[in-house]
Write a protein that binds this DNA or RNA. Structure first.
Length: 661
RNA sequence: GGCGGAAUAGCUCAGUUGGCUAGAGCAUACGGUUCAUACCCGUAGUGUCAUGGGUUCAAAUCCCUUUUCCGCUACCA
């Protein structure tokens, strides 16, 4: 007996800070279509997804909601699972990072890396050079000394654990170079190489002391494991991996031995860095094999800018499903997503696809085929063998499509694969036009030919519907049920004519996809939009006293504070720094002096509106060059959670130069 | 600023190693058909293939210039 080939695919685990929108849902559907196809090809598949549930954000949100973090994530994780189920995703394992087994293994992994010396205790703030009053990350130091003055640096107080990435850089570069398929699409490989690997990696901070909602470092309980070691490990802990080799068995099966290394990590392009650099380094440090391939897929975006609840343009999977049905939504997200660029989603496009592809081409084809069979042949589909030349072209097409679909799926070109399947249905519609069954139906002498024509159609549709299973499983079932046909496996698609001759199709064909009126749909979309805006308002109304917690810095002495000189400055001129996206260069009058100060606020203030403002200036900061421009101080700003900046200004008129104390 | 990518029909995009009148889908117009969910089939298109130059018998494709857009990244005193 030949062992079945295995295929292990994972999605990123979804962060449980809130309900996932269609962009997140897309990933689960994409993954599902790939694994379903692999199953059709006879692979022994394991499909894992789940939720990432730790971190400061969740700690804060649960506090706001007045419940424990665990209650909070139980709720959100449940919601996510419900959506994944609604979308008909066929995962084998839904892992949660709060699972006891996972937490235990993460602690063991952390400890092992620490004992091995690959994780060391360091300082999150970096190295401090007292004379220069500057912090540096360890990798910025020259021979362990300040890159500016060459003197010794002192570690700052905030302690944290770091993963030594630098130790494995060369091995990773080598691996990526010798495995061109490792990072997909290929353009992403260059980004990782040029931006991180070749310039040299900074060690990664892997613990936090600033919040509690995480997996504790068991040998140093002030620390919790920060996101990456926790979240990334799910790919092996979900298989029952045990660091000491006592892998947990599942029904007697050693899943870790069987499925690791993973065949494919399917992730969004935004977290490619973590999966192609940090994760492989972790695995190397643990002496475990690396995953075979990582695909950073693009995103589905709204046509009119970023999705935001306050704009009311967030599209959620359940709203779409209510209007269109599960398979239509699956079809849409898979079909609209190109391989490398972001796809666009909108209600209008959704209606267009629904009507032209699903209702007109596919639904109508099935419907007209069945109704002709009933009308002319009493529903009995029999191959009477009266072939004509046109049949050959149809058969050739029908036999060619499965091969094309396989080829596209192998390259992860899911959108192209679906298009291939639909080209089969389009060919069928053309075949009806070529053979004109309604003409044959009027001539008793041509009844056998008619019968053959309809047989060819039913056979073609059976193959097409079977191919559709990876993408639209419910639709496959429905079509085959109406035709009373057996589902065709991949290796049965090399031959035309397996549909049992003489089978009777259903007398009452059900409409597969209802045509929709775009105006009605848009009206409903508008309703959803208003509802969202109202909800967003209610939420922000509740949290009007919204607060932001930032990481606490070590205490300073009064003397430390008094070293800093703050004054009111008047901006008398301001221009953009040409070579930079973010910087403005201001001439600031402080007393009788004029200082040149460069600030990263171009996104929030134009050069013109800066002029005349009176602002708070840190005057005695050591001058530095930014983008080649000298800056002799700092304009102070307040920053919100989104990074929006607001200049600090005196609350009553004050002359330029007034001391702030 | 660094690295990379893109610019093709009204829209979304294909176009492999340079090769015959530059393609597909949607939308539009016209024609055909009536089994069907007013559907399906056919035909017609419009293109200075972003820009200027170069290599070549031959360039959407290769090289350089300019412009615009996008991604990653750095500067945020």
């Amino acid at each position: 007996m030949e062992e079945k080939k295995t295929f292990y695919l994972t999605t990123a685990i979804a962060y449980t800070s809130g309900k996932p929108h269609i962009g997140n849902t897309y990933e689960a559907v994409l993954a599902d279509s790939i694994v379903r196809f692999k199953r059709m090809q006879g692979y022994d598949v394991r499909f894992q997804t789940g939720t990432d549930e730790h971190g400061q954000k969740i700690e804060l949100k649960s506090e706001e909601a007045g419940i424990t973090p665990k209650q909070f994530v139980d709720d959100v994780s449940g919601q996510i699972k419900t959506i994944w189920d609604m979308m008909n995703t066929s995962y084998d394992k839904f892992i949660r990072t709060t699972d006891e087994y996972h937490e235990k293994q993460v602690q063991k992994i952390f400890k092992k890396l620490y004992e091995k010396g690959d994780i060391y205790k360091g300082h999150y703030e970096g190295m401090y050079c007292t004379p220069c009053e500057s912090f540096f990350t360890p990798s910025q130091l020259v021979d362990g000394k300040c890159p500016d003055c060459g003197r010794e640096c002192q570690p700052a107080k905030e302690e944290a654990y770091f993963l030594k990435l630098s130790k494995y850089t060369d091995r990773l570069i080598e691996h990526i170079n010798t495995h061109p398929e490792f990072i997909q699409p290929e353009s992403r490989k260059n980004e990782m190489m040029n931006n991180f690997l070749l310039p040299g990696l900074q060690d990664l901070c892997v613990s936090r002391t600033s919040f509690k909602w995480g997996i504790p470092v068991d040998f140093d309980p002030n620390h919790v494991v920060y996101v990456w070691i926790d979240a990334l490990s799910n790919y092996i802990t979900g298989l029952g991996f045990d660091l000491d080799g006592n892998h947990t068995l599942d029904d007697g099966e050693n899943l870790y031995e069987k499925f690791w290394p993973a065949d494919l990590h399917l992730i969004g392009k935004d977290i490619l860095r973590f999966h192609t650099i940090y994760w492989p380094v972790m695995l190397m440090a643990l002496d475990l094999p690396l995953p075979k391939q990582i695909f950073g897929h693009p995103w589905l975006l709204q046509g009119d800018g970023k999705m935001s609840k306050s704009k009311g343009n967030v599209i959620y999977a359940d709203d779409l499903v209510d209007l269109f049905g599960v398979d239509a939504v699956r079809y849409f997200v898979l079909h609209e997503m190109p391989f490398e660029n972001d796809g666009v989603i909108s209600w209008e496009l959704m209606v267009e696809r629904m009507n032209s592809d699903l209702a007109n081409v596919l639904g109508n084809l099935v419907n007209r085929t069945i109704s002709m069979s009933n009308k002319y042949l009493g529903g009995v589909i029999a191959d009477k063998g009266v072939a004509e030349e046109v049949d050959e072209d149809l058969k050739a097409k029908v036999l060619e499509v499965p091969m094309n679909v396989i080829q596209k799926m192998e390259q992860l070109r899911v959108a192209d694969a679906i298009t291939e399947v639909f080209s089969l249905f389009k060919r069928c519609n053309k075949y009806i036009d070529e053979t004109e069954p309604w003409v044959l139906g009027k001539d008793e002498a041509k009844k056998d030919r008619l019968s053959t024509v309809l047989y060819n159609l039913v056979e073609s549709i059976t193959i097409g519907a079977s191919l559709l299973e990876a993408f639209m499983p419910d639709t496959t079932e429905k079509i085959l049920a109406q035709l009373h046909a057996e589902k065709r496996s991949m290796d049965e698609m090399d031959r035309f004519g397996k549909y049992a001759s003489g089978t009777k199709v259903t007398e009452t064909p059900e409409i597969l996809f209802m045509r929709l009126d775009s105006k009605e749909v848009l009206a409903k979309a508008e309703e959803i939009k208003q509802k969202q805006i109202a909800e967003a308002k209610a939420e922000s109304g509740e949290s009007e006293e919204e607060v932001i917690d930032i990481e606490a810095k070590p205490e300073v002495t009064f003397d430390d504070f008094m070293k800093m000189q703050f004054q009111v400055g008047e901006i008398i001129a301001c221009e953009e720094v040409k070579k930079s996206k973010k910087l403005l260069c201001s001439q600031v009058k402080v007393g009788s002096e004029v200082k040149q100060i460069v600030s990263g606020i171009k996104q929030y203030y134009s050069a013109e509106e800066m002029v005349g403002k009176k602002v708070m200036v840190l005057v005695n900061l050591k001058p530095a060059k930014l983008a080649g421009v000298l800056s002799e101080g700092m304009l102070l700003c307040a920053e919100d959670a989104e990074g929006n900046l607001a200049l600090m200004a005196p609350e009553k008129p004050m002359p330029a130069g007034a001391e702030i104390c």
